[in-house]
Lab assay of single mutants.
Amino acid sequence: RNRTTFTSYQLEELEKVFQKTHYPDVYAREQLAMRTDLTEARVQVWFQNRRAKWRK
């Protein structure tokens, strides 16, 4: 699989949710996936990576 390149809009939306919660539930991830036109799996992985970056 190729690396996903996120648009500025997608990143904005993802970051907005990340500010509210670092662990969005499956419903929140589904909503976000629909809004950003990404798969729920991509959203889930983005949050995993974002949490790792945040911990550093």
Rank of each mutant, 00 (worst) to 15 (best):
E15T: 03
N49A: 12
T5C: 10
N2W: 02
F6H: 07
T7S: 09
D37K: 12
T5D: 15
V26I: 11
A33T: 05
E13K: 03
E13F: 03
A33P: 00
A52N: 12
V45M: 10
T5I: 11
Q10L: 02
A41K: 14
L32T: 03
K53V: 13
L11R: 07
A52E: 15
E15Y: 01
T5Q: 15
V43I: 14
A41T: 14
M34R: 15
V17R: 02
T4I: 15
L14I: 01
E40L: 13
R50A: 10
V45A: 13
K20A: 08
Q44R: 11
K53F: 09
A33R: 09
T36N: 04
V26L: 13
R35E: 05
L14T: 00
H22P: 14
W54Y: 13
V43E: 01
R50W: 01
A41H: 11
V45K: 09
P24R: 00
P24F: 01
R35D: 06
E13Y: 05
V17C: 14
Y27L: 14
R29L: 14
F47C: 02
F18V: 04
R42M: 15
A52T: 11
K56P: 06
S8P: 12
E13L: 08
K16L: 07
N49T: 12
Q10A: 05
T36W: 05
R29C: 10
E13P: 00
Q48T: 09
A52P: 01
Q48W: 06
R55Y: 13
T21W: 06
R3M: 15
T21G: 05
V45P: 01
Y9V: 13
W54D: 12
R3N: 15
R51K: 04
Q48M: 14
D25K: 02
Q31R: 11
L14W: 00
Y23P: 00
L38Q: 03
R1C: 15
F6Y: 15
R55I: 06
F6S: 04
F6R: 02
E40S: 12
T21Q: 05
T7E: 12
R3F: 15
E40Q: 14
A52Y: 06
Q19Y: 08
P24D: 02
F6K: 04
K56L: 10
N2S: 10
L32I: 09
R50C: 03
R55P: 08
R35Y: 02
T36Q: 03
D37G: 14
R50Y: 02
E12C: 05
V26C: 06
T36R: 01
R42Q: 15
E15N: 03
K16M: 08
T21H: 14
T5E: 15
Q31C: 12
R3T: 15
R51T: 02
A28T: 08
A28H: 05
K20S: 09
Q44G: 13
R29S: 06
E30F: 07
V45C: 15
T7W: 08
Q44M: 11
E40D: 14
H22I: 11
R3S: 15
Q19C: 09
R50I: 01
E15C: 02
K16W: 05
N2R: 05
V45I: 13
L38E: 02
K53A: 12
R42C: 10
D25P: 04
E40C: 07
K16R: 10
E15A: 01
W54C: 08
D37A: 11
T21K: 03
V17Y: 10
T7M: 09
F47V: 01
K20C: 07
D37V: 07
K56I: 07
Q10V: 03
A28R: 06
E13Q: 08
E40V: 11
V26W: 10
R1M: 05
T21L: 04
R50S: 04
R3Q: 11
V17Q: 15
K16E: 05
S8H: 07
Y23V: 05
R55H: 12
T7C: 05
E40Y: 03
L32N: 02
Y23M: 04
M34H: 07
T7Y: 07
M34F: 12
L38R: 03
R1N: 15
W46H: 00
V17P: 00
R51M: 06
Q19G: 08
A41L: 11
A28V: 12
M34D: 06
D25L: 03
E40W: 03
A41C: 06
P24T: 01
Q44P: 01
Q19A: 12
T5V: 14
K16D: 06
Y9F: 12
E13G: 01
E13M: 10
P24Y: 03
V45F: 15
K16C: 09
V43P: 00
D37T: 06
R55K: 06
T39R: 03
A41W: 06
A52K: 07
E15S: 04
V26N: 14
R3Y: 12
